[in-house]
Design a protein around this nucleic acid. Sequence first.
DNA 1: CGTACTTTTGAATCGCATCAAATCTGGTGG
DNA 2: CCACCAGATTTGATGCGATTCAAAAGTACG
Lengths: 213, 213
Amino acid sequence: MSKLDLPFQNGRSEAILQAIPSGLRTLSRRIDLKAGETLFRAGARVQSIYLMLEGEVRLVRIGRSGVDVTLQRARDGFVAEASLDSSSYHCDAVSTIPSVLLAFPVGAFRSALVQDSGFGRLWQSLLARQVRQLRAQCERLVLKSAEERIVHYLESEGVDGVVVLPMTKMAWASDLGLTHEALYRALKRMRDGGFLAVDGQRLELVPRGQSGA
Amino acid sequence: MSKLDLPFQNGRSEAILQAIPSGLRTLSRRIDLKAGETLFRAGARVQSIYLMLEGEVRLVRIGRSGVDVTLQRARDGFVAEASLDSSSYHCDAVSTIPSVLLAFPVGAFRSALVQDSGFGRLWQSLLARQVRQLRAQCERLVLKSAEERIVHYLESEGVDGVVVLPMTKMAWASDLGLTHEALYRALKRMRDGGFLAVDGQRLELVPRGQSGA
DNA sequence: CGTACTTTTGAATCGCATCAAATCTGGTGG
DNA sequence: CCACCAGATTTGATGCGATTCAAAAGTACG
């Protein structure tokens, strides 16, 4: 199965997939999860590495204090690339909505990283990019107001303050750590204030002092 | 200078340093920054990779909208590992307090990654660990209440709900995206409520229903 | 046409940020 | 040893902005 019959919603996963050597890609198999289904459980042997194609999977750790904490909500990219380094999972993975993933055998993945030095370096770049992006996201989430987070997103993820959102605004609100109501209200304020132009999924930051008309 | 006369405050950087091949380590040079000094500017050629030893450096992008956004506040680990993949920096780096860093020549670093396959794999593990930790931090910052963030930290960074804080509580508050007042108050509430034991830098989550006596 | 989901607006509440200030701490120098 | 200082820790009062709950209107899709 070297060809995927999937209408990609998912830019990052698509880019990753192209970076994967075709020999390895051939070994992948598609996995469909219904909402609430479990992908793997803590303690289980790591047998596959998973790439998100559609939907959402959460990594959850259940502490003995009875509380459960979410370690990752994956909609994009790999679910738990750190599992490459360990022999068993350290948390549960559960889908929150119907999801589609690609599973790569972990052994083949590891040896591809070692033997195919080009892939190894590419993998390093992917991880480094991830790190940079996640760092920026953390800084964004530390900001107190909705407007600050929006501006930060446009400045750090966009080009010259322009972004075409790769997701619905509801999902974006969730990424920004806001309720959708708060996001919509902030967008309206910024539009009314004249420092943001919104056209569907396209958002543009207008430098202060220049209204859009 | 293969020996560093530094009293390490800095666990992560120390671990990283040990992972670096001694040949590369030898080429490092120490850099001291006063508060407010600039380490590099956007557009400058990437000549070094920097490891934080002490202090804090911020990566800042100045958008043409006049706003400036912080992309990373580094106190630990590398300042901008993504610079490994590009020829020039995409943001400014400025120290906020007096800081000490180690600078590695980027060329030597890149070739070490390619030629020393052990180092290459180690680098991948380090990055993967970073990714995991940053993902958890993002999930933590999405939580609305101070208590939830504290519990999340203890569950995800600690072992069995026990953590010995590797930093002051003020710095922790900043990592948690809280003011120090909010953090102190939440800690007090949790202590009083009996589900958290605090002893200096040691924090332990007490399973609900069992007070600490 | 109907269903599911997104987008939008409203009102009330709550928790955190903010500003202010006091206490405590460790370390320095006289 | 003590005075002193910088930084950390702690407590209080106030206001604001996001959350929450509720509901309506718009939109895509079968």
